[in-house]
Each structure stands twice: as C-alpha cells, then as structure tokens.
C-alpha cells in the first residue's frame, strides 16, 4: 500500500485510541480534562526512553529468542511502562484535582499538561529542546489496531455492566450517585487512571511510529483536538469517538488542496457540524454491531 495512506490509517488508529480513552473521562464520567496530550507525552517519552536505553539489555536477556521477537517483547514492555507512567501521572493529578468542580479541574489538568511539556524540555536524556531522535520504528498497523481493539472492548465492557454504570451515574448527577452509595471520587480516579494509561500507550505507539518526538506535538491544542473528537463523536459514544477521530484525522489531509485556507475551512466545518448536530455524530448511541454483547441481551 502507498506509504502516505498507510501513515494516515495508522494515525487514525492512534487518534482513535486517544479519543476512546478520553471518552471514558469526559464522555462517560463527565470530568472535563484538558490533560490528555500530557498523558500521551508521558507515555511517548517514557516508552521511547525505555526502548532506546534498555534495548541492549533486552536483546541480551532474550538472546535465546530470534531478535525480532525479542524486540517485539521490548516494545510491549516499553508500551506498558509508558502507560503505567502516564497512569501514575493521572493518579498524581487526579487526587488533588478531582475533588474540584468541573471548571477548576479543566484548569488544573491544563496546567499539568504544560508542566509535563516544560519538564521534558529540560530533560537532556530525552533530547530536551532538540527533540528525542533515533527512536526505533516498532509501531505498525498490526500493533495499533490490536491495541485499539483491546481498548474498545475494555471500555465498552466497563460501562455496559451493572457495576460500570457508576461512571455514567456520576456524569448524570453526582449527588444522586453518592446518595445510592457510589464513591464518586473513587470512580473519577479510576476513570482518570485508566484513561491516562491508554493515552500513555497511544503516546508510545506514536513515538515508535514517528521515531522522533518533540514537545510541540503535545501542546494543549493537542488536548483540545482530542476533546473535539469526543464531542464530535457524541459524548459517551465509543464508536462515535472512533468515527470522529477518523474524520478529524482525514479532514486536514483532504483539505491539503486548500493550502493556506486549510485550518480555516477545518474550523468552519467543525462549527457547522456542531450546529447541525450539537449532540455529536452519534449522540450517546453506539454502532452496536461493533461492540461486545451483554449477557442479558435485549431483554435486560
């Protein structure tokens, strides 16, 4: 396949992972986070540092295996490492901020994203202001779409279960949710940590697709782009997030013909979309056939 198209398809997958994981935080749990690009950055730099600095060690440790397999293992561990770092970041920001009301939370998470960026800029072993170069190219179509599938199955199973409905209840009405015995704070933390974990994995995939990282890729505008995907898809709709991530990744490419008018048309199209369908493309609905079934089926 043409490399340009493959690159777009890969970016669609990564953006879909980002949107679906953010959807757990914003769409399902109703917590407005502006820090998703920050979590992505943690995962990207964390996993890239892991593969770059632990490669020799890994290849020696698994010298009995074929090198390609050993490298796949290295990549897998690096992804999980990056995801875990990101979820720790989520925990760290979440604990003090998730008790805050919505608008404060947004500002606090915005601050976090910027702090991470500045921090990375000053870390020399990940390239600092020059950018992080020579990251091995491990990410491919297979990895991206395998992980996207796992995320989608996990997120939908989570909220389509009696216990997981707690996330939705908190979004709908936190006081009422507390009144029936739901620890809203705990669930918000879980949403943050799980969402950040997959954002970190998304970052790891991005790092090993691009082979080069610069903090500019993770500015708060990036967070806003992810929020745009969740909102455009319909808050709380997993398949909607995927659809919107695809559209918003494709659109700038399609609009390349418009050259300097590109971003203006992009913005106008978004505005028109939201006027015509304020509830998002799918609202709160799903493409059901794409998702795992619940044991009670339709009679539940």
């Amino acid at each position: 396949m043409n490399l340009y198209y493959l690159q777009i398809i890969n970016m669609i997958g990564i953006n879909a992972i980002m949107a679906v994981s953010l959807n757990l935080i914003i769409g399902h749990t109703g917590q407005f986070s502006l820090g998703h690009a920050g979590f992505m950055a943690i995962g990207a730099y964390g996993s890239a540092a892991f593969t770059v600095y632990q490669k020799a060690f890994f290849l020696k440790l698994f010298s009995g295996l074929p090198p390609s397999l050993a490298e796949s293992l290295l990549f897998l561990v690096a992804l999980i490492f990056g995801g875990t770092l990101a979820s720790l970041g989520g925990l760290l920001v979440g604990i003090p901020t998730l008790r805050l009301r919505g608008d404060y939370l947004a500002i606090a998470t915005l601050g976090l994203g910027e702090i991470i960026r500045v921090l990375v800029l000053n870390l020399d072993f990940v390239g600092g202001a020059r950018g992080f170069t020579d990251i091995p190219e491990y990410t491919n179509f297979f990895w991206i779409y395998l992980i996207l599938t796992i995320v989608v199955v996990m997120m939908t199973r989570l909220v389509h279960s009696a216990k997981g409905k707690a996330f939705l209840a908190i979004r709908e009405d936190e006081i009422a949710a507390s009144s029936i015995g739901i620890d809203a704070f705990q669930y918000k933390i879980i949403a943050f940590v799980v969402g950040a974990f997959w954002a970190g994995i998304g970052g790891g995939l991005f790092a090993h697709l691009n082979t080069y990282l610069h903090t500019n890729s993770f500015s708060f505008l990036k967070s806003i782009e992810f929020i745009g995907m969740v909102v455009l898809g319909g808050m709380g709709s997993v398949t909607g997030s995927i659809l919107a991530a695809s559209l918003l990744t494709l659109l700038p490419e399609v609009l390349r013909v418009a050259s300097e008018w590109r971003m203006i048309i992009y913005a106008l199209l978004l505005i028109v979309f939201m006027i015509l369908r304020p509830q998002g493309l799918l609202g709160k609905r799903e493409f059901k056939w794409l998702l795992p079934k619940h044991p009670k089926g339709k009679n539940g």
């Binding site: 009696a162 409905k165 939705l168």
Partner: peptide, 22 residues
Amino acid sequence: FQNIRLFADLTVVDNVLVAFHY
C-alpha cells in the same frame, strides 16, 4: 429529591441497576 434527580440519560432499568452498586 425535591427536584427529581434521576440519571436522566440512562434507561429506566439502568437507573435501578446502578443502585445495586454497593
């Protein structure tokens, strides 16, 4: 609640299911 506080965008059955949480 004096001003009804249901989980407005959840179905009737989900409003009950979620209350079994504990």
